[in-house]
Design a protein around this nucleic acid. Structure first.
Lengths: 217, 217
DNA sequence: GCCGAACCGTAACGTACGGTACGGTTGTTT
DNA sequence: AAACAACCGTACCGTACGTTACGGTTCGGC
């Protein structure tokens, strides 16, 4: 059953075969970066270039579909806002932090962000917008309710949830993402990721934790 | 007087004429991004392509020389470590923060980081390494002595200067750089930059300021 | 005034790659 | 079994662009 790029845009996701192709593009993107050729994609995915063009329109369409496909694969564990105490909030923040660190340090994320950054420089700003929307902004949308629940529970104090989120974001990511994107070889073991998540969470709580008793700053 | 790319690598910088060419590349890079062509550079700089190749070797050499040229233009105001008190340290940190925010939000920085990120994905990792070295790491080398002076003066408390610097970096940059690189249009007025610098500095002091009297966290 | 080096402007070359066309194969419908 | 759609593999086309080559101009040295 033929499914055009337009149909993919507005309807149900790619077919199984198309997903295979997009996964091949992902792998190729990690290996070769933005200089992957349509020929290489066709060869890797064992499909014809004609099919690629029929399904995805052109090279940019293929890259866009790939980015969306990868973004769709990222699923998150929701947080229950009931019975929130300091321990639960701390665990939640740590989990967000470690998840995020693992995402931005993954090969696929690095490769995808690289092509998105490259495309943001040209007229084709779509890729950057998608990555931003499904990455940074999606994280904010998921984390802000947690922060606000913490505030309602009297655990956190802040004026603006967006600002508070950005502080947390900075404490977690620091210079990791830009260094990775620029080619710095950072080794991030699981232990280090968890340690960084703990540190970032503690720092955030030190800044925005509710002041109780003599802990006034 | 002819000056080959090799001579430029190991010796005195580019000649005045070559600087004009590199400035033209910079402007073109801001306008067109990585898809600038050698023909466009030659036309913009009013020089021949033959000269470009004689001076810079090839396209990558031209881009490398451009990145180094821009990096060389960034100069910093040193900080005197004598008579350091909290006010002086605060002012110093705020200045670092606002300077850095202005750098990473400038058109040239964004354009340069974009091409560097793109090149970091291919075999040509040079550009990324240069940007990293003259950007993030240069900032760290300049800031760490300030932090250590603050610690010696009893104003700051931290174990590792590198870790403390990265915390400050995160508090300052937050999500700004990645958003700009991905094409997000962020408006950063001078007032906002200064305000962010103050906020980041206060947050850093809250985390690493020496505990005096009843201010224990 | 003459010579050569450096350089400009432009034309030309080679190639890599995006995009298209086409013959052959498989699987499905009638 | 005939017809047809979807698809694979490959050959092909057009073009953009990196790189080179060349004629003409400026300029410093003798």
């Amino acid at each position: 059953m033929l499914q055009t790029a337009i149909e993919m845009m507005e309807g149900d996701g790619p077919t199984a075969r198309q997903q295979d192709v997009l996964d091949a593009v992902l792998r190729l993107l990690v290996e070769e970066g933005d200089r992957l050729t349509m020929t290489a994609v066709a060869r890797r995915a064992s499909c014809s270039k004609e099919t690629l063009y029929k399904w995805f329109g052109d090279r940019d369409g293929l890259l866009t579909a790939t980015v969306q496909w990868q973004a769709a694969k990222v699923r998150v564990t929701p947080v229950d806002r009931k019975g929130l105490d300091l321990a639960a909030l701390t665990a939640s923040l740590q989990r967000f932090a470690s998840d995020w660190l693992r995402v931005i340090s993954s090969d696929t994320s690095i490769a995808l962000n690289r092509v998105a950054v490259g495309h943001a420089g040209s007229d084709k700003r779509d890729l950057g917008a998608i990555v931003l929307e499904r990455g940074r902004f999606a994280l904010g949308r998921r984390l802000k309710p947690v922060l606000e629940a913490g505030r309602e529970a009297g655990i956190l104090e802040f004026d603006d949830a967006e600002t508070a989120f950005r502080t947390f974001f900075g404490l977690v990511a620091r210079d990791v993402q830009i260094r990775l994107l620029l080619g710095d070889r950072i080794e991030l073991t699981d232990a280090e990721v968890d340690g960084d998540a703990v540190r970032a969470t503690q720092q955030f709580l030190a800044l925005h934790g509710a002041k109780t008793g003599p802990k006034a700053l």
